[in-house]
Amino acid sequence: MADRYVWRDGCFRDRATGEPMTVPDGPLAIPQMTPVMPEYTSPIDGRTITTRHERREDLKRNNCVEAGDFKSPTGGKIRNKAFAAKRGLQVSEEFR
């Protein structure tokens, strides 16, 4: 069983012996808090999403994946002339 400590006299102490807790050498492991996800409405089915679990379930339920998971097949270069013209862009040199 892991040691148990209590806060007493300005430091953590072993619950059984009262000895101060020893700090291991090297970097300390500290907890990290993930920020709260802002609430939003699913663009697919209109449900309100408030947690990361609901987001994963919404993606799974609607057979979707995170948009950031895919890389551009052209590496961000534009090859479609109609797409470029509609947005006032130029087709990349290698696709002309």
Rank of each mutant, 00 (worst) to 15 (best):
P31T: 10
T74G: 05
T34V: 14
L59V: 08
R8D: 05
D58K: 12
S72D: 14
T17W: 02
D14I: 00
G68T: 03
E93S: 14
E54T: 06
R96K: 15
G10I: 07
N63Y: 09
I44F: 13
E57R: 13
G76W: 05
K60M: 10
T17H: 07
T51I: 06
F70V: 11
W7T: 00
P24N: 04
A16F: 05
Y40C: 12
Q32D: 11
E66P: 06
T17Q: 09
V36E: 11
E66Y: 12
D3N: 00
T22P: 02
D25P: 10
A82C: 07
L59M: 14
G10Y: 00
L59P: 06
T51Q: 10
Q90L: 10
R87A: 04
F95Q: 04
Q32R: 14
A29T: 07
D45E: 11
R47F: 12
P27F: 02
K81I: 04
E57K: 12
K77V: 09
T22N: 05
P43H: 09
E19R: 01
R4D: 08
K60L: 14
F83M: 01
K81S: 05
M1R: 04
A2Q: 12
P43A: 09
S42K: 03
K86A: 13
P31Y: 03
F95V: 08
L59T: 06
C64F: 14
K81E: 10
K60H: 13
T41H: 13
K77E: 15
G88T: 04
V36Y: 09
R56W: 04
E57W: 11
W7H: 02
E93W: 12
D3E: 04
G76H: 08
D9K: 03
I78C: 09
R47T: 14
F12H: 04
R13D: 00
T74C: 09
T41I: 15
I78E: 09
E66A: 12
M21S: 03
K71C: 03
L89M: 15
A85C: 06
V65F: 08
D9T: 02
K71G: 13
T22Y: 00
E39F: 03
